[in-house]
Write a protein that binds this DNA or RNA. Sequence first.
DNA 1: TACTCGCCGGAAAGCGCTTACCCACCGCCC
DNA 2: GGGCGGTGGGTAAGCGCTTTCCGGCGAGTA
Lengths: 344, 344
Amino acid sequence: MARSTIADVARLAGVSVATVSRALNGNPSVDPALAERVRAAAIELQYSASPLARSLVLGRTATIAVVVPDLGNPTFQEVLRGLSLAAKAEGYHVLVADSAEAVEEERALALDTRRRTDGVVLVAPRMPDDELAALLPELAPVVLVNRRPDAVPAVGADYGAGVTALLEHLHGLGHRSFAYLAGLERSVSNAARVAAIEAFAERSAITVHRLPGGVDFDAGAASADAVLATGATAALAFNDLVAMGLMSTLQGRGVDVPGELSVVGFDDIPFAAYTSPPLTTAAVPTLRLGELAWAAMSATLGASGAAPAALGSGAREPAADAASAHPLLVPDLVVRGSSGPARR
Amino acid sequence: MARSTIADVARLAGVSVATVSRALNGNPSVDPALAERVRAAAIELQYSASPLARSLVLGRTATIAVVVPDLGNPTFQEVLRGLSLAAKAEGYHVLVADSAEAVEEERALALDTRRRTDGVVLVAPRMPDDELAALLPELAPVVLVNRRPDAVPAVGADYGAGVTALLEHLHGLGHRSFAYLAGLERSVSNAARVAAIEAFAERSAITVHRLPGGVDFDAGAASADAVLATGATAALAFNDLVAMGLMSTLQGRGVDVPGELSVVGFDDIPFAAYTSPPLTTAAVPTLRLGELAWAAMSATLGASGAAPAALGSGAREPAADAASAHPLLVPDLVVRGSSGPARR
DNA sequence: TACTCGCCGGAAAGCGCTTACCCACCGCCC
DNA sequence: GGGCGGTGGGTAAGCGCTTTCCGGCGAGTA
């Protein structure tokens, strides 16, 4: 029952292992008839080369690693999915590692998985800039998601643009006083949101109450009273999860959304359309983000893989940008029922 | 910049590579002082053994593969997460493969990933029994999720029990006429549901209209009219996604849930609690399912890994069962707002 | 017919590690 | 003081492949 090796095939075909290797790898220097004989022997023995041994000698594993902070987060799930499908289309495998939000573990995790693969796609929104910068050289080739230290390829969503679109939407509805439920302080994408908010506040007289927050449902639920206390007419949640938690508690308090308070999220996770009321949000094309992450990785790997894999799932993309080494996807504003005219 | 090898360390420490290997692997036969010298040399060179070379000679990769039909499905996402975390706790890595619901590809995918890992966890609800049976021997060690051909370890949820609990709940509310939105015909868990429904129908006079269905939101949305046409007072959806799709269309039709029609789902995905009305469902402990899948794999691997990793996330588990080779988790009935008394 | 050039396939050297296997050396006992 | 068991560490044989290097053979030319 033991797996057959290249030596078995060589023996059966009556040739040397070198020839078997050449024949099976399509090296044109081997006589067609001989190659056929080898192939037949391989099939008879159900032989297929050991990826392990192959990797060792070739120096490539045809596998990439993906490190995410939380596999339970819909955003990272979609990125993973897009990445996984795109990589598969080019014959690559994906090793996934969930750092479980443990920032101090991310470095070791990334380094560890890197050694078993040809490269790593790192999603580490909370890792400090200096630590990240120090880590990158050891990780190369590496592609970053939602971080842009310029030194390496990166893909990301334009959080600033998304927030601005949401604010413009709300502003148009008459809102002037906002509550912002922040994400984690150290988060890069939180910083991008805050910057956009401040820029908007500067040019249109609005007031923004920044509230400490979190990234999940519970964080939103816990912030409801604080939001109401600000007297704001609209709440901008860090993401859809937070917005949903907020709305949930709000309903419990008997607060009318959007009558008394408009609530908007961010990301447009699959269920944002089915909350009550449906959530107004900025749709981040996360699946596409994963695909682009693969494209970037594939490019730096010099992968001369299979078909260029027509990547679908449209999303507004400045063509020049999507093709660059640092594509930045602009989220689409999705207006649903959770936002309405400001209460008087 | 080239990575240092064991030979470099040997040279620096002034010993043979064999000694380096022994020292670094904690072989007690090496003199403590020497071992320390080797360790120092290794640190100086930032050496760490190549997992690839190590795997080749040891015959183990410290990696397992997980094959799922759709990474976009919350159920599989949670299973993957539970599995990934549990495996990580024992120093194992996870290679993930999304078959994208292409049943004909699953075999090749499983075989392929298997060769790069020490075992595979297979989630293939749609693969025909005979094909599955033929595949298993080639895959060993393998752990199945939601399939139970007895031949190999398997973990699963007791879909029959879950459906029965839902039916009892609805029956208690006075419902006698049901619509069942089936999953894919070939799906094993669909068969389990159907069997439970028929058994229930046999002992309590009810009528059940079986409708062709699907597994996603759209399938549910598309079935709304067919459900209404049956005149049933309660709809049992294949899963929460289908139930949500159904409710969504129902709302568009102005149908009152649960006033005119009760709707129940299955799985208790994270967002089931936040639909409008919140969804009554049977909670499948998917995270736990992933953990158990790892436990089963770990056991067959004879993994003498790190700490036995206290697996949390409670769920009603017949103790004897959870410890068995075929744990079957019983879903919890979760009553929310989408189910109510039958209309008269 | 003798010589050269090409083409094909074999032998062997790794890829970076682990682990028999074996030898040298030390201390012990008689 | 010489033989002997025990112990630590070196030598080398792989793990299953790929690829360089080289030799042999057939064909083409003079």
